[in-house]
């Protein structure tokens, strides 16, 4: 619409310039007016363009920042020293051999005091959707309780259950199930 107006103005000026000159002479103030409007519109357009560019820049830098954050999170994630904690079927008791693993995690958290983590509880596919979601919560909480016992501030640990909704292994055999009955540590991106 705006372009149309400008075009119209330009056409009018041109027409005025070549056709109407000999007849009408007292129209100069109007030309100045037109010129002013044209200038104004030009300025507006420039401003818009500049705004758009700065917005694009902003978005780019935001994306860049997010990418860096993600990379950093990934980096921290990679530096989490322990693997998942595994459970027996329908159980939320940490097996004795895994206590050391949780302790290592606790030591790492104490060494990296700025970090917060999410403790995710997962289950295998055998069982009801609802009971598994509750069971996953229990698994996450029991691991959190161990971490707190080892001296980690509980405010730094968030628990969440995914029940059987996010299996690590999509298979339907004992191997897959064993891998899916787990507590997974992740860095808390919100924290």
């Amino acid at each position: 619409m705006k372009y149309l107006a400008i075009l119209l103005a330009v056409v009018m000026i041109t027409c005025y310039g070549c056709a109407s000159k000999p007849v009408q002479t007292g129209q100069k103030p109007l030309t100045a007016e037109e010129q002013a409007r044209l200038d104004q519109e030009e300025a507006l357009k420039r401003k818009e363009r500049e705004a758009r560019i700065s917005e694009e820049e902003l978005a780019r830098s935001r994306a860049e920042r997010e990418r860096l954050e993600r990379e950093r999170a990934l980096e921290t994630q990679k530096s989490i020293p322990v693997s998942d904690v595994y459970f027996e079927y329908d159980s939320y008791t940490v097996q004795p051999e895994d206590i050391a693993k949780i302790k290592d995690m606790g030591e790492w958290l104490k060494a990296n005091s700025g970090l917060r983590i999410v403790v995710e509880g997962h289950c295998d596919e055998r069982g009801t959707v609802e009971y598994n979601l509750a069971l996953g919560q229990k698994r996450a909480e029991v691991v959190k309780n161990h971490l707190v016992k080892f001296g980690v501030d509980e405010k730094r640990i968030r628990t969440i259950s995914f029940g059987k909704e996010m299996p690590a292994d999509p298979g339907h055999n004992e191997d897959a199930w064993a891998k899916n009955r787990r507590v997974h540590f992740a860095t808390d991106q919100k924290g």
């Binding site: 009801t128 009971y131 509750a134 229990k138």
Partner: peptide, 12 residues
């Protein structure tokens, strides 16, 4: 209202 509370899991 809280209807019922118990240790462990309550579900469904």
């Amino acid at each position: 209202k809280t209807l019922f509370t118990k240790e462990g899991i309550l579900a469904s």
